[in-house]
Every structure is written in structure tokens, then in C-alpha cells.
């Protein structure tokens, strides 16, 4: 069976003072090969925890996680990760960063050289190959992170707010790039974001999570990602359904936030 299947996943953090946080409760979902799912939710609803479990950095307290027919145990090259920032290796050049995965697998430059240079072309960094990381802008650094992940050819790409630290214009360009790479490579992608627009634009599927305990609140299937490939994303945003969905989901998240606030006031 190809694809990612998550069943009854729960995660509970026991705190030193005897208390605990139920970060995830009974999360069940399946992702087919090549699907792009964006994840939205108020802060603290367990998005990062979910992603860390899928990446293999955390072991869930209960539940099952199966990728392509085998259970996930620990991090592996089949699941690549793109962090918000700060995960590039400053002591390596751009090209060394991008070729890190293949090099660690013991491949020779003859094997990875062409692919890495091709990826650097795609993300528009062909002229920055030998530059140091600290010489790049934030947007360029995220493109390096993206290329580094792709160069390792994972089955699943996990992104935790990859564009969160970028300015609006760079962000829009990067969104187009993510869509383009997704279509070209056919990777399964889980993308966490705080931007409802971004979630709508990029997610073929959209998962809204609710906090305390962290759980799936609602799931959508959306047409915008397919519309957006090779298109001006601003055109997609003008779609009447786009505005309607945006309002709906914003309202949903607002309600959740308000509920949290109310609960906090009660307990205070």
C-alpha cells in the first residue's frame, strides 16, 4: 500500500509537576501518494507535534503510523523536512547544503552533481552555488532548504511554516514554487501554516485542527492547488469560492481562539 496512514494517534506530554498536556488525541487520517495537505489551527493545537511524529522525531504515546506499508520508527531519508528557518548548515556552501543527503548516502558527485545543479536552477540559485549561507536573504535560504530536501528524493515532505518568516512578496513567489515542485515531482507533502490563504492556495486537502486536546476539527478538499499550478496565484484568490472558504475557515479559527481565551479567563 503506498501512501501515509495515521490511525488513532495520541500524544501526551507528561510535565515534571505531575500535570500533562494532551497534545494530540485520536488523530486518524490517510494521505495518498502525491497529495498535498495543508494543516491549519490555532497556536498550540499540536500541528508541530503531529509533524514531528510523522518525521520520526517523537514517538506517539499510542496509535499507528504507516508509510508505504511499513511502520515509521525514527527519522529516515524517506521523510524530508523543511523547517521555518535556521536548519541550514552555515559551515557549508549552498551547493554543499543541497547535496548533503546524497553525500551522506555515500554517493559520488557524478551521481548527484547533475540533479543538484538542476534543482538549484529550478529554485533560481544557479548563481549562488558557492556562496555561504549567511550571504543569502531569508527567501533564498528557504529555497536552499527546499532544494536540499528535494535533492534527497524523499517520499514525503514535511514543512513546518516554511514560509512563515518571509515577506509577502517573496512568500507569494515561494508559494508558486512549492506548487510547481509538487506537481513536477509528485511528492506527498504536509504543510503547516498560519496563513489561511496559503493553506487554501496550496492544499489539495486542508486539515483544520482544534486545541485541547489537539484533534482534527474539519477536513476540506479544495480545487485551488490544481488551479494554481502555472497560474498567477492572485487570479486564484479572486475565485468566488476562495473568498467564501477563507471567511468560513477564518471564522472557525476565530471561534476556537475565543473559546481558548474564555477558558483561560475562567481558570484565572
Amino acid at each position: 500500500m503506498s501512501g501515509l496512514s495515521i490511525s488513532n494517534l495520541s500524544m501526551r506530554f507528561d510535565l515534571p509537576n505531575g500535570d500533562y498536556v494532551q497534545a494530540l488525541q485520536d488523530v486518524t487520517l490517510t494521505l495518498a501518494q502525491g497529495e498535498l495537505m495543508s494543516v491549519l489551527g490555532p497556536s498550540g493545537c499540536g500541528k508541530t507535534t503531529l509533524l514531528n511524529i510523522v518525521a520520526g522525531f517523537l514517538a506517539p504515546t499510542s496509535g499507528e503510523l504507516v508509510l508505504n506499508g511499513h511502520e515509521v520508527r525514527g527519522p529516515d531519508a524517506e521523510r524530508g523536512m523543511v523547517f521555518q528557518q535556521g536548519a541550514l548548515f552555515e559551515w557549508m556552501s549552498v551547493r554543499e547544503n543541497v547535496s548533503f543527503g546524497p553525500r551522506m548516502a555515500g554517493k559520488s558527485e557524478r551521481e548527484w552533481g547533475q540533479n543538484v545543479d538542476h534543482l538549484l536552477d529550478i529554485v533560481g540559485l544557479q548563481d549562488f552555488k558557492q556562496k555561504a549561507i549567511y550571504e543569502l536573504s531569508g527567501g533564498m535560504q528557504q529555497r536552499v532548504a527546499l532544494a536540499r530536501c528535494l535533492a534527497n528524493d524523499p517520499d514525503v515532505i514535511l514543512m513546518d511554516e516554511p514560509l512563515g518568516a518571509l515577506d509577502a512578496l517573496t512568500r507569494e513567489k515561494m508559494q508558486s514554487l512549492v506548487l510547481k515542485l509538487w506537481k513536477e515531482t509528485g511528492k506527498t507533502i504536509i504543510l503547516i501554516t498560519h496563513s489561511v490563504e496559503e493553506a487554501l492556495l496550496l492544499g489539495e486537502r486542508l486539515l483544520v485542527m482544534a486545541p485541547r486536546p489537539g484533534r482534527i476539527h474539519k477536513e476540506y478538499r479544495l480545487p485551488f492547488a490544481d488551479l494554481g499550478v502555472g497560474e498567477d496565484l492572485r487570479e486564484v484568490k479572486k475565485h468566488p469560492e476562495f473568498a467564501q472558504r477563507r471567511e468560513e475557515i477564518l471564522g472557525m479559527i476565530w471561534d476556537m481562539e475565543e473559546e481558548i481565551m474564555g477558558r483561560q479567563e475562567e481558570s484565572a
Partner: peptide, 29 residues
């Protein structure tokens, strides 16, 4: 060492030795 660097290296398939050699040592320089 920022934990995200270590995580990134593991996700890229690095072994413990490689993490040491390519992440922890240079990061501590």
C-alpha cells in the same frame, strides 16, 4: 546546536557518526 539542524540532518539520512562529523563538530567550532 540548534535541534532543527540535527533533525534536518537525520531526515536527510545522516548516521550518528555523520551528525557528529558534519553537524556537531562544525557547529561547536
Amino acid at each position: 546546536v540548534a535541534i532543527s539542524k540535527v533533525h534536518a540532518a537525520y531526515s536527510l539520512g545522516a548516521s550518528k557518526r555523520q551528525i557528529m562529523r558534519y553537524v556537531i563538530v562544525p557547529n561547536s567550532l
